[in-house]
């Protein structure tokens, strides 16, 4: 590796300062990486549980829709679900995990006794089951979206941090150490050259006096 620095004492001090700074940054980033990883793994565990629950519920609810669709025409299905019985919304806020803004979603459903917006004629019991199943799963589905987005954001931050840690650990710090070594070596060499010169001068002076 080519080192392009002037081998001066000033440069040595500056490089050592940078090295100390880089090592401190590396330690901090490594701590951040560990903490991020801890949160990340925690979210992954939550996501696994939620996804299992959601998929399980969907497996039960969707065949209901399938059965309903097989016994109801498109017009009947559209008419049955034309108007939503429950007024619902998703409240979106954000929270901080290691200075990363992650979403916080809440499924808010208005006060309703039930969620079936259709009558009984030409609608099937399978549709009731499907609507009920999907209504029950909605809060978890929204929570799953929140967790998965958080995981995505954390993963990208993890990747960025890991790249920084690696850059410091494998490039910046070794380079700075190499630079320090180089400058020290050059300064030592200059020191030795000076010493030799002085000894030579002393010898010449001694010879002249004799």
């Amino acid at each position: 590796m080519e080192i392009r620095v002037s081998a001066t004492r000033m440069q040595l001090l500056a490089t050592r300062k940078r090295l100390v700074m880089a090592e401190r940054g590396h330690k901090l980033l490594k701590d951040k990486l560990d903490e991020l990883m801890k949160h990340f793994l925690e979210l992954i565990r939550t996501e696994h549980g939620l996804r299992e629950e959601v998929e399980d519920a969907l497996v039960h609810a969707l065949p209901g829709f399938l059965e309903a669709r097989a016994t109801m025409s498109n017009e009947l299905m559209e008419a049955a679900l034309l108007v939503s019985r429950a007024q619902s919304k998703i409240d979106a806020a954000s929270r901080n995990i290691m200075n990363i803004k992650v979403p916080e979603l809440t499924w808010v459903i208005g006060e309703v006794q039930d969620v079936y917006p259709y009558g009984f004629y030409r609608t099937s019991a399978a549709l009731d089951d499907a609507v009920e199943g999907l209504t029950m799963i909605m809060p978890k589905l929204v929570k799953l979206a929140e967790v998965e987005k958080s995981i995505e954001l954390l993963a990208s931050e993890l990747e960025r941090t890991r790249r920084r840690v690696n850059a410091l650990e494998y490039v910046v710090i070794p380079n700075l150490k190499e630079t320090v070594r180089y400058v020290v070596m050059k300064l030592d060499e200059a020191e030795r050259g000076n010493l030799t010169r002085l000894m030579k001068v002393k010898e010449i002076v001694k010879e002249k006096r004799a």
């Binding site: 108007v83 079936y116 917006p117 259709y118 009558g119 009984f120 004629y121």
Partner: peptide
Amino acid sequence: SPEIIDIIVDKEM
């Protein structure tokens, strides 16, 4: 509520 429209019209039908 929407299902009221359905059930009354169905009954009339």
